[in-house]
């Protein structure tokens, strides 16, 4: 495993007299993994995202991206090229007047020659399946399409990490599916590293690893099956357990002792089947 990001003892607050939004946070991101950072609104998870690509700088501690420290002014642009963020509001991050313009925006900033830009653009819009919309204006696109354009704009820069900062929370179910599906494909086919910041535990259940944040601190970290063992803790900090886990917990209270945690309905029904066979 290769470490891409290392966050070391980071504390952060927006203004000096204000309370800390992040307190002594440490974590590491491995190449090729899908990492979910979960927590309810105000837990500091979006602030963390902004520290990861140098939009904000830590008050204490360090953020290292592939060896570049976000404190060095020279490194900031290296870091931003390596870490792309898809933000929450699809409208407020669409800079261009058309899909092509928007995907080009980051490339233009990097000073890429036009010919090469055109190549990169056509390549990346294909990956998010927006190639038929190149001339479309943003107000004619759905939320999910706009977010896919945002992803295309990021991957055109060939970053090592894409952060989804609650990127699906303003979308309808169809839009949410299409964005997550797109990211899963990119991870699988391109080996992209993904950090998904979300309060949707169902989405997090499909991650490789979960970090739980509450009140500015990392309070748990591990594989989904391990984190979900602490269902009560997750609910206490305002998160909803996925439905299969809720059913399983209720059954456990009735005296049915499950061997393993079931994150999906299929697993749950299979477990119930084995129960029935045993008895």
């Amino acid at each position: 495993m290769e470490e891409l990001i290392s966050v070391q003892n980071v504390s952060f607050r927006y203004q000096e007299e204000h309370p800390y939004v992040l307190k002594d946070v440490g974590l590491s991101v491995q190449k090729g993994e899908w990492l979910a950072i979960v927590g309810h609104n105000g837990s500091g998870k979006s602030t963390l995202a902004r520290l990861l690509n140098g939009l904000l700088l830590p008050e204490k501690g360090d953020v290292l991206v592939e060896g570049f420290n976000s404190r060095d002014e020279e490194s900031i642009w290296e870091i931003r090229r390596r870490v792309g963020i898809v933000f929450q509001n699809p409208d407020n991050q669409f800079v261009g007047t058309s899909v092509q313009d928007d995907v080009a925006f980051g490339l233009e900033n990097s000073g890429m020659p036009r010919e090469k830009m055109l190549e990169r653009i056509s390549e990346s819009v294909k990956k998010v399946r927006m190639e038929d919309f190149l001339d479309q204006e943003p107000h004619r696109l759905s939320g999910g399409q706009k977010q896919r354009v945002a992803i295309a704009g990021i991957i055109a820069l060939r970053p090592s990490i894409v952060i989804l900062d609650e990127a699906t929370s303003m979308l309808d179910p169809a839009g949410r599916k299409e964005v997550l599906q797109t990211m899963r494909e990119l991870k699988k086919e391109e080996g992209m590293t993904v950090i998904s910041i979300t309060h949707d535990l169902e989405e997090a259940a499909r991650a490789d690893r979960i970090i739980v944040m509450n009140a500015g601190e990392v309070i748990d970290e591990g594989l989904p099956v391990d984190v979900f063992k602490k269902g009560d803790m997750l609910e206490k900090i305002g998160l909803d357990l996925p439905f299969p886990l809720q059913v399983q917990r209720a059954l456990r209270e009735k005296g049915y002792d499950f061997e393993k945690l079931t994150l999906s309905q299929e697993e749950l029904v299979n477990e119930l089947w084995t129960f029935q066979l045993k008895s």
Partner: peptide, 13 residues
Amino acid sequence: TLDAAVDAALTIL
């Protein structure tokens, strides 16, 4: 509801 779903599972078991 969750309760109704749990009840259904219980009747089966």
